[in-house]
Design a protein around this nucleic acid. Sequence first.
DNA 1: ATGACTTTCTCCAGTCACAGGACAAAGGGC
DNA 2: GCCCTTTGTCCTGTGACTGGAGAAAGTCAT
Lengths: 396, 396
Amino acid sequence: MRRMTARPANGHQARLLRLLRDGGPNSRAQLGDQVDLSRSKLAVEVDRLLETGLVVADGLAASRGGRRSHNIRLAPALRFLGVDIGATSVDVAVTNAELEVLGHINQPMDVREGPVAVFEQVLAMAAKLKASGLAEGFDGAGIGVPGPVRFPEGVPVAPPIMPGWDGFPVREALSQELGCPVMVDNDVNLMAMGEQHAGVARSVGDFLCVKIGTGIGCGIVVGGEVYRGTTGSAGDIGHIQAEPDGRPCACGNRGCLEAYFSGAALARDAEEAAREGRSAELATRLDETGRLSAVDVAAAAAAGDPTALDLIREGGNRTGQVIAGLVSFFNPGLVVIGGGVTGLGHTLLAAIRTQVYRQSLPLATGNLPIVLGELGPTAGVIGGARLISDHVFSPA
Amino acid sequence: MRRMTARPANGHQARLLRLLRDGGPNSRAQLGDQVDLSRSKLAVEVDRLLETGLVVADGLAASRGGRRSHNIRLAPALRFLGVDIGATSVDVAVTNAELEVLGHINQPMDVREGPVAVFEQVLAMAAKLKASGLAEGFDGAGIGVPGPVRFPEGVPVAPPIMPGWDGFPVREALSQELGCPVMVDNDVNLMAMGEQHAGVARSVGDFLCVKIGTGIGCGIVVGGEVYRGTTGSAGDIGHIQAEPDGRPCACGNRGCLEAYFSGAALARDAEEAAREGRSAELATRLDETGRLSAVDVAAAAAAGDPTALDLIREGGNRTGQVIAGLVSFFNPGLVVIGGGVTGLGHTLLAAIRTQVYRQSLPLATGNLPIVLGELGPTAGVIGGARLISDHVFSPA
DNA sequence: ATGACTTTCTCCAGTCACAGGACAAAGGGC
DNA sequence: GCCCTTTGTCCTGTGACTGGAGAAAGTCAT
């Protein structure tokens, strides 16, 4: 079902749509306070938006001592789809025009099965959300993939952990299937946009968002805009050298951060500790095939296992060391830590903070909060919705 | 002498002024091709600029098959002052409105003497340039200082190598003295702007400009604009850790890049090598007080001294290692190496390149030029002129 | 030379965006 | 009921801008 969502005709209309998205329903007068247009001009633009159906006027607000105002809000039937493709699972969510999550599904999945299989699953999940009555159709979809993307075309490039995805026209293919506009970005950038829109990074112009999951990546926001770099690989910090001539890494180099810490590295180190008998706590959590996951380590740490705590601290130190360098270089106003390992919580955060505050320049760390993301797994899907809504709410 | 330079009245005029600055004299028709305005509107704006005296029409260009065009150019009497304050010397230059250097003076100086003494010297140098007939007055001045700056106010903050400068109102004081608009920025950012305007970084949107002088800093350009960070300390990469638990650094930490390489570190290591008899070549260059400078090392290296070459290679390796991390993170389209040690030339560059190409991700380095700055000591002063001209050529 | 064609620049009229004031609608407080 | 406030609409004047007509000043081929 093709859905021909109207698009704003000019910058003013786009501005108004975003104000309604971010600030919720508003009266004309309230909108006028934020937009530096005369009331007459504003009324004209609002009327035009009402004609297109993108916004509706429903009901009157309570009086504030004078004539009651009309509630202007985004069309309640608008729906965005946020899709966050991880290495081992997918998140799909529907939001309304205000980017509130109405329904959210998470399913295990393996990216290595290739784009065709994965998108079959994603489309099934989207259909399920639609079938449950949450949406009649989608007005746009924002997709996050775990690797670099040529952003303008929406095509993954040379993704190390995603063989078979290189050059696959994600944007075009999904736009066809879903019958709505689609934007594709790196999953880390999506998380950054999510935390910026609805999480800890509201009202911060320049910040870093470090996502520690199967790998490690970093979303870079400059002046409120995601910075993607010349070839779309900005923020790829997993293979920054943390230790000269250190451990060998899957990428072929030595001493990469990911060789020391990431969901995968943590699980591997924990398995080794368990097998070598250094932690009874971890050993009890081994599954039939002798494997552990980051979640197991988090549980063991919560239970007070010293080996697990050490592994987390050690990883946090390495990560903090790299982040310290980035903080000196980038001088952000905030550092957000997120991703699958957020469950490691305060132990991880404390280790990272210690390193950063010790190694970065006082001027850069003086007033620098380093915090956990507050949206967890919804950061990515909200970011996806945000990405596509920015596109849909821009002049045609 | 107060000089009341007119300012453009709107964005169109500002745009035209910058086109004339960057592209030199142009006819109305040529301007029209670049500015997306109707010829009539363009004519109006040009006429208004002519009235203000900011631009002049002098002479007719050769015919290109039809009516000859008028040459529209920036007023030939406009003068900008570019000032680049280093740790041990000052550069002062006058440029015309097209930012061509008309006169350039370099003098030794010690920043530690404090802002009052330094600016006395700077003003004397400016007066000298004026006396030599290069300028009747200045229409703006761009100042670079070797430390972080609160950019909007033009005030240095907590400069480690500049005690006594903290909080000194450079912009206000100099604006008073010179009687013209003044802008203040980090010297590294100025160099980046210089290379962007007239050097190797023309037409590159996102790049890094590493300046290796007494210390090490890095100018960051995002989308053609200098990025300064939340507190103005972005690009301060001298104290990024290059070696965990490495050499002690003056900043109190260990293993900082500057502890291994910079003009100062290189001179120190060379002196040590000379004293320990590891290099006869270097020993012959020791001055009366047993000191060497980076220039001596460059000369020794040029003469083929293996110890000097080793020192340079070693420093280049360390620097390259740090830059490799920044390249992975920032994914620039170009890396420029500049500053006092540019004299070390190809040996240094080769070492840096080797490290970066080996350690950064292929996607980020795939088409990444790493080159020496081509402006040398004029990069900073041109950057200063560029900085202030951007300000003067913006709507009042 | 002369006419045909180009290029550059100016002038003019019409259109559109927008601001700002007058005014109507709708309510609160006394 | 009266006066005040807030919200929203209508209308007109102004200034920004476009596009076309045409004048000015050339080149080039014949």
